[in-house]
């Protein structure tokens, strides 16, 4: 088994398909509900399959913070409207193969958008670093 982080982005990554790029505030309210129901169902299905580790959404409003020397308060910056890449949320799964991770990501990408049509959004799949196995030499 290996863990994979499936990242959903507000923007960033490859070009979205035409007709699938409208922000959510331009959808009908019931289309938003259908999208969120799909996400909840997916988490439930992953649990039933014994694969779900975590699923979270994050606020698009974020702040950049850095160390500014001993005894000084942290420096903050942002938010940056022009940031190219913005994470919307993630699903972490523990699955048998990379192939299965891609299948789960593709399913996540099929979440309904405007008109109930699949969004076809790009999901970024990143392997999570695991434990060192007992036998390597």
């Amino acid at each position: 088994m290996a863990k994979y982080l499936l990242l959903k982005h507000y923007r960033g990554g490859p070009q979205l398909l035409p007709g699938c790029d409208a922000p959510m505030d331009q959808w009908a309210p019931e289309e938003i509900s259908a999208h969120l129901t799909f996400m909840a169902d997916m988490a439930e299905d992953l649990t039933r399959r014994g694969e779900l580790v975590d699923a979270q959404g994050v606020s698009p409003e974020g702040t950049f913070v850095r160390y500014d020397g001993e005894g000084r308060p942290p420096v903050t910056d942002g938010p940056f409207a022009e940031t190219k890449d913005l994470i919307a949320g993630w699903v972490v799964i523990d699955v048998e193969s990379q192939e299965r991770a891609y299948e789960a990501a593709a399913h996540l990408s099929s979440a309904p958008g405007q008109g109930g049509r699949p969004l076809h959004e790009w999901i970024e799949v990143r392997p999570v670093l695991g434990e060192m196995p007992m036998v390597i030499e």
Binding site: K3, L46, T47, R48, R49, G50, E51, L52, V53, D94
Partner: peptide
Amino acid sequence: AFLVPEATMAQRISR
């Protein structure tokens, strides 16, 4: 031991 939620492992075992 496998760093997954208990509910997930319970489902994996019952499947």
